[in-house]
Write a protein that binds this DNA or RNA. Sequence first.
DNA 1: CGTTGTTTTGACTTTATTCAAGCATGGTGG
DNA 2: CCACCATGCTTGAATAAAGTCAAAACAACG
Lengths: 260, 260
Amino acid sequence: MLGVRTGLPVEHCMPVVAGEMDLWRRACGRCSLQRLCLPYGLDGSDIMRLEQLVSIDNPVACGHVVFEQGDYLSALYAVRSGAMKSVIIDEDGLEQVLGFHYPGDLLGLDGMADRQHHCSALALEHSTVCRIPFERLDALLDELPSLRRQLMRLMSQALLDDEELLMSLGRKSSEGRIASLLLSLSHRRELRGLAATPVRLAMKRADLASFLRMRTETISRVLKRLQVDGIIRLDKRDVDIVDPGQLRAWAGRSAWLADQ
Amino acid sequence: MLGVRTGLPVEHCMPVVAGEMDLWRRACGRCSLQRLCLPYGLDGSDIMRLEQLVSIDNPVACGHVVFEQGDYLSALYAVRSGAMKSVIIDEDGLEQVLGFHYPGDLLGLDGMADRQHHCSALALEHSTVCRIPFERLDALLDELPSLRRQLMRLMSQALLDDEELLMSLGRKSSEGRIASLLLSLSHRRELRGLAATPVRLAMKRADLASFLRMRTETISRVLKRLQVDGIIRLDKRDVDIVDPGQLRAWAGRSAWLADQ
DNA sequence: CGTTGTTTTGACTTTATTCAAGCATGGTGG
DNA sequence: CCACCATGCTTGAATAAAGTCAAAACAACG
C-alpha cells in the first residue's frame, strides 16, 4: 500500500509494513528499521508508547524540505524511505552539504540545544519521514529509560560519524575521499539489508563535491580514474564496486605523511 | 589552595573554589564553570546528587593522557583547568587532531554508543579534570530530568560544533581556517570570562596543522601573513588579535564560489 | 524537439605541499 | 655556567595536486 503510494522502487520501501488500514500510529513496532532507529532496545509496551507520538508525514518530493535552517525545532524526523541531504546556507548564500541520510537516520539532533534547526533537510528523491514531536518525546524520555538510552546512543553515534568524516577529509587525497564515501554508502546499504554493491548516488555531483570539499569537475575526473583502473563501474549515478579491496586501499591510504 | 597545588597561572584556575578542605565532593555547586558544564540548569539538591559522583582526578602533566582510544569507557571527563586535545591514531600510526578542549568541556561523549573511547584525550599543558563515572551517571540521568536535558543539550552542542568545523574546513582558504580557529579560541575565552584578545596557543604548530588539515609550514606562513597585514601580533605562542574585524572578514570569506 | 540542468572534458592557473636547510629555544649533563 | 642536543618553528625554491574557466556533450522534461 505505502509502497504503491510512494511509487518507489522496492529498495526504497524498506520500512513498509503491509496489512491494516491505520498502521500510521503503530509503525515503529513493525518497522524493519527498528534496530537503526529510536525503537531499538525498547520492549513491546514501550514501543507502543513511542508509536503514539510518531506520525508519518506526507511524502516529500525531490528537492523539497522537511525543515529549514532557522526553523523552530518542533519535532525530530526519521527518514523512512528515500534519501535526504542536510545543508547549511552561509551568509553569502553558499550551500554546504553536511551529510546524506538514509532510512532509519534521525534528523534534527543538532538543534536540540537551542530548539532551533541549524541546517535544512531536503529530499534527494521522493521520500517519506516519520515526525516525532519534540515536546512529547522530551516528556517520554523521562519515563522510558531505554528510550533515553537509545537516543543518547544515536547522538553519540552521530558524533562518531562526524569524527570519521573529519578523519577522511583530513587525511585523504581526492581519490581517497571518494573511495571512503562509496564504501560508506555501500556499508549503509548492508546495514539496511541490501546488497553492498550497486550503489545508487541519489545526489548530484555538485552535492558530492560540496560534501567532500572538492569541485564537481574533480569528482568527475576521480570517478573516471577509478573506473579506468577497474575499481568501479560507473553508469550515470549507479556505481558498481568491482574491486572493494582496492577501494578500501585507496580509502585507507593517507595522502600525507605524519609530521609529529 | 588548588591554585597553589596546580601551580598554574591565574587564568587556568577558573574552577577553583577557595576555602574548605574537602571541597572535592562539593565542587560542582561552586564551580565557576557550571553554566558550561553538566550542572547547568540543576537546582541545589540535584547538584548535590551530581557532586556525589564527580571526583577530581590527579593533575595531568603536559603530554599525558586522560583516556586512550580503545579504552573501555568507564567515565566521562570534564576539563577543569588547563587545555587538552583529542586525537585519533589511524592504522598507519598517524595522528589526527579532532579538537581542542578547555575548562568546562566534556570529554568522551563519542564513546557512549558502544562504551568505548574512540579517541585519546591528552593534556597540552598541566591540567586537571573531573571524573564522572559513567554507570552512576547513567543511573542518575533517569532520576534527574534536568540533568538528562543538560547532557543532551551538551551532546547536541557538540554536534553543532562539529558542523561548524566542517563548514570552515569546507569553504575557507588557509588564512580563513586559521582566522576561524583564532576567533573560536578567542570566543571560548570570553565564554569563560576572560579577555578576548591575547590568545595563548597551548598546542604546537603540528597540532594546529593536523586539526586544520594543513602542514606546519603553511601554518607558519599564514600566521606570518596575518601579522604582516597587521591583523594579529604574534609572539611565539601568544597571539594578540589586533584587528578582529578583518579577522572575521577572513573567516567569513569563502575561498570558493558557489556551484550552481 | 527544443530548453534546461547536469556532467564531462580540456587547457591553464593557483595554491598548498614537498623537500631541504637554517634558526630559536629549552633542558641536560659535563 | 656553558656547550650540546633535541625539539619546535621558520624560510625558500621547486613541484604536484586540485581549482578555474570555457565549452561541449549528454540527459531529462515538458
